[in-house]
Amino acid sequence: MKPIRLQRRTLGLVAVIAPLLALFIYVALRSGPLAPIPVTVATVESRPISPALFGIGTVQARYSYKIGPTFAGRIKRLDVDVGDRVIPGQVLGEMDPVDLDKRIGAQQAAIRSAEAALQQAESKHSFALAQAKRYALLFDVRGTTEEAFATRQQELAVAEAALGGAREDVARLRADLEALRAQRNNLRLTAPAAGLVVARAADPGTTVVAGQAVIEVVDPAALWVDAHFDQNGTQGLATGQAAGIVLRSRQGQILRGHVLRVEPLADAVTEEMLAKIRFDTQASPLPPIGELAEVTIRLPQLASAPAIPNAAIRTIDGRRGVWKLTDGKPEFTPVVLGQSDLDGRTQVKNGLAEGDRIIAYSEKTLTANSRIHVVDRIPGAVR
């Protein structure tokens, strides 16, 4: 009787455990770590795309003038403030001349004294020249001695030397005066061109050094965007292309511009190309210098070619490719990519054909041995 009861108990336990084990295996294979990975699938289509470049930059002034003194000194006055418009030659402020005006006055007095000395030297020279000529005539007719004639010639030479020295003194003093006047004029801070005052780095009474900027003026009619573009796909970037500019402070408003210049030097650290984007019309009100801006440049439409979603592109072991469905299993296929558009499509030059099915999104990272399950969409994924 006992063996029969043990067999019944064993069979009962097996009857209970077997379904539970089967249920566990089923759950593990369907929703556990061994479950298939949900994926969405896209079909390679041959279609034309309109490639576009997207860049980030800042608003900068093409022409900027930093105005300051040519030598160290103290600011006496400033006549403009930030936001004021100026015209060429307008006096923006002045440095303290200290003793420069007195030095100019002393130099003018020295010139007057030198000019008086010059007149005296000219008179002496005229008298010595007349005496030398008279004694030369007398010497020719034996009316004077050779010694007297030589004395008059020597006096003429001395008078000529004195006259030359007096003239050089006057010229030197006048040059010094012009230098002092130029130095005095340099104390006036003048606008070199028409523009807008955007910065005032010091106030009256402040001592500044030579070359230090006191006032910064920019030309508001010549603003541009210093834009940065990823080097991938910038082959078609060229001067003259139309551009759309969206300022950070004016979201939704697209300002028109064009590529003024593509910089010959790229940024080797960020791997970006640099370009200057100029506004077609002056923005009103003027955007602040340094404001962030988004730039979009649309390139000419390309001919039809196989195109895939950007989300499907993967990089494995340094190779770019996609997961292609082959007999329902994922297979990594390297591809050669072309240009992209802003709608998330990239043309494929080699590696795929029209009609191929590829994995666009996957819930987890895929491998060649991954089990997959095709779904319409994955929660949280962008369609």
Rank of each mutant, 00 (worst) to 15 (best):
A227C: 14
E115D: 14
T333V: 09
E363T: 04
V208M: 10
V80A: 00
D96A: 01
D341S: 03
G321N: 01
A303D: 12
I372C: 01
I358Q: 06
Q7P: 02
L292F: 10
F149A: 10
Y26M: 05
R200F: 05
I289G: 00
V374R: 04
P287L: 04
D341E: 08
L337R: 10
E45P: 12
A161D: 04
Q347R: 13
L137F: 07
I111L: 00
Q339T: 03
K329C: 06
F229Y: 07
G89P: 03
A199R: 12
G195M: 11
T43H: 11
T40G: 11
S370F: 02
A132N: 15
E331V: 06
I25A: 13
G73L: 06
P36L: 12
P204H: 04
D343K: 15
E272V: 02
A148R: 15
L237C: 05
R320F: 07
A381I: 02
P97F: 08
E294Y: 14
R77W: 05
P300Q: 01
I245Q: 01
G351N: 10
R134M: 03
G93A: 02
I104L: 14
L163Y: 15
R5C: 04
I4Y: 13
G355V: 08
A166I: 00
I359A: 05
Y63N: 15
R47L: 14
V14A: 08
A110W: 00
V269A: 07
A15R: 01
L187W: 15
K66Q: 13
I372H: 02
A157F: 03
P204K: 14
D317W: 11
Q212F: 00
I25F: 09
T270I: 03
L177E: 14
G165A: 07
L177Y: 14
W323H: 01
N186R: 08
V141M: 07
P330S: 15
D96W: 00
P288D: 13
D99V: 00
N369R: 11
R112L: 12
D176V: 04
R256E: 04
I297P: 01
K364V: 03
I313M: 02
L23W: 12
A213K: 12
V217N: 11
V80D: 01
P204G: 05
T365W: 01
I87Y: 06
P220W: 06
Q7F: 09
A242V: 04
L302N: 07
V335I: 14
A171E: 08
Q212L: 01
V218N: 06
K349P: 04
G89I: 06
S304F: 10
Q107R: 15
V16S: 05
M1T: 15
A312P: 06
G165H: 04
G32C: 06
Q60S: 12
G380N: 02
D176E: 07
T270V: 06
L302R: 14
T70E: 13
R298H: 11
G164Q: 12
L78R: 02
G328M: 04
D267F: 05
Q183S: 06
G68M: 08
R9P: 00
V39N: 03
L366Q: 14
S370L: 08
E331A: 05
A179C: 09
D99P: 00
T151S: 11
V335C: 08
E263S: 13
N369I: 09
E271F: 02
L100V: 02
A191C: 09
R188V: 02
V375Q: 01
A130V: 03
Y65M: 05
F332D: 10
L286S: 11
A368M: 14
I289A: 00
S31F: 15
V141G: 10
K124E: 07
V218D: 04
